[in-house]
């Protein structure tokens, strides 16, 4: 057991934990951030995607010891003061969620994508999103949501 300090959604949090415990478990069980989902535990579905120092990572494969002193952003940390981000709003407007269990990971991934590449091509979106599974198979609406978010960012930047 050791103490780990993590900046989660702009808040300094710490926990006493075995070093190899998955970040996913710490977020959900110690910090009460249940928005990040378990899907497979092997990085194959990416439902558990969070940003670690702004990079999208599978929290199920990330030991807590790897994020000591780093910053983590989860789905709960995207909207500020009830103001949804463009990606979140686009996921509502283009009806991206069926059961919605994969949605948090999808939104976090798309957020990172649009930050590093505000005008991604269809192919670049597919490359970024392809590791994410949606078993409801709502892929077309999810893709439309990411494109809508990209378009609305562009519009607001102009």
């Amino acid at each position: 057991m050791a103490r780990f300090a993590v900046n989660v959604n702009h808040e300094e949090l710490s926990t006493e934990s075995p070093p190899d415990r998955p970040l996913l478990d710490v977020l959900r069980e110690d910090f009460g951030l249940i928005g990040t989902k378990y899907g497979c535990g092997e990085g194959q579905c990416r439902a558990c995607t969070v940003l670690i120092d702004d990079q999208p990572r599978a929290s199920c494969l990330t030991p807590i010891s790897n994020v000591d002193g780093k910053s983590v952003t989860t789905i709960e940390g995207l909207a500020s003061d009830d103001q949804l981000t463009k990606v979140q709003q686009a996921f509502i407007d283009a009806d991206a969620a069926q059961c919605g269990y994969c949605t948090a990971g999808m939104i976090v991934e798309a957020t990172a994508l649009l930050k590093r590449n505000p005008e991604p091509s269809r192919s670049e979106i597919l490359d970024a999103m392809n590791p994410h599974l949606c078993r409801c198979c709502g892929y077309r609406n999810i893709l439309a949501s990411v494109e809508l978010a990209a378009a609305s960012s562009e519009a607001s930047d102009a």
Binding site: T36, I75, E76, Q88, F91, I92, A97, G100, T103, I107
Partner: peptide, 13 residues
């Protein structure tokens, strides 16, 4: 639209 969409996209559901 889905009635719980906002809860879903904010991780609150």
């Amino acid at each position: 639209l889905k009635t719980k969409a906002r809860e879903i996209v904010t991780g609150a559901h």
